[in-house]
Design a protein around this nucleic acid. Structure first.
Lengths: 202, 202
DNA sequence: AAGTTATTGGAACGATCATTCCAAAACAAG
DNA sequence: CTTGTTTTGGAATGATCGTTCCAATAACTT
């Protein structure tokens, strides 16, 4: 089914992003992208110099159209652990809406697929992780403000812990179709953060 | 440089495993494997029906030659959180010995690269996760025996939390060359487990 | 409507993929 | 050494890869 040009072009990166996300950078072919985006080879190569540049555009779009809508509440001023809880809840609710296994996180998936010497790609992944770290850091710092239980260094550690743990959650979501398992993981993580903000018993 | 037959065959799966591990299932070619294993195409296809069967053999070998040596202490009788701490410490020490970025965990990497409908492959990944879960579960239960702070369900949750968090750690190790960051993550995880076993303040 | 420009779909290309095949080399048995 | 069996290295194969190219078509201008 042919589409109009504006339709095709507007959804090119979106559809390509989903294909890269689900299938993986190396496993997805230009033929797959032509089929799934509805844009011809000529169209793709007139907008992007090649597969890698299109993929980079997809990584950027992933930030805007996937990460930001669900993570912005965590980054907002005045948000604490409740924001993190809501973030995880939203993600798992989204997982429940899909049939079967999850597709994880595009960034986390890409991490294990690219050669780390590809600096441009790796930088985009690092930026994503830094973004998550900063968001979590800010939210944790908000709830730490009252009692000052944690030092700055401890806040750093806990924020990085949260960021990396969430990556593990999305990795694992590709292996299970059971949302309850993911939810228990999220609950455990949130309980852990709350406990740390209350202070370690001596 | 030619090798004797027995040498080649003994190291075929080992070398192939490392190539799959570092480069990824789809990105590694038979030509790569020929070069890195020192076994010719004929040799590879006389022992294995194809790339996938060789890969499955690599996943099995990964369990025996990589996971078991470092994880058996966690699975041993009489081991508690100390075993988990030693396990993480060994892994990070190994990471420090390598130059530059890590290569993560073969299972975790594969998770994001295969189509979940490939049942045979997915089952091997599930088995790995179950193994880690059971090992962590047993170690946590050991330390829970004294005060019975956690219920069976809570032990399940904490063991799964540990398993998934460790997957996140290995995912992230592909993005950093700084062992200290990984070590802080491990310390935070261990502190979390110890705190949970001490009980949540009410 | 006619002429000009922009975009399309898909054929074509060289490279590389996983896999097959086989003559030559290495080995074992007498 | 001779014969028979295994194993080897790499050429050959068909499929598919990312990329290029262009005649045909759509869109825009006047």
């Amino acid at each position: 089914m042919p589409r109009t040009r504006s339709q095709s072009r507007a959804t090119l990166v979106d559809s390509a992003m989903k294909a890269f996300w689900r299938i993986g950078y190396h496993a997805v072919s230009i033929g797959d992208l032509v089929r799934e985006t509805g844009v011809s080879r000529g169209g793709i190569y007139s907008d992007f110099s090649g597969k890698q540049e299109l993929f980079h555009a997809c990584l950027d779009r992933y930030q805007d159209s996937v990460v930001t809508p669900v993570f912005a509440p965590v980054e907002a001023d005045g948000t604490g652990i409740d924001g993190i809880r809501g973030y995880l809840d939203n993600l798992i609710t989204g997982f429940e809406a899909t049939e079967g296994f999850g597709i994880g996180c595009l960034v986390g998936n890409t991490l294990t697929q690219i050669d780390p010497s590809e600096d441009a790609t790796r930088k985009k992944l690092e930026d994503h992780c830094t973004r998550l770290f900063n968001g979590f850091r800010k939210a944790l710092a908000h709830d730490n403000q009252a009692n000052r239980v944690l030092s700055d260094t401890e806040l750093d550690d806990l924020a990085r812990f949260t960021m990396i743990s969430v990556q593990g959650l999305w990795s694992y979501s590709r292996l299970t179709d059971d949302a309850a398992t993911l939810r228990r993981y999220a609950d455990t993580l949130i309980a852990t953060l709350e406990q740390r903000l209350r202070g370690l018993p001596t």
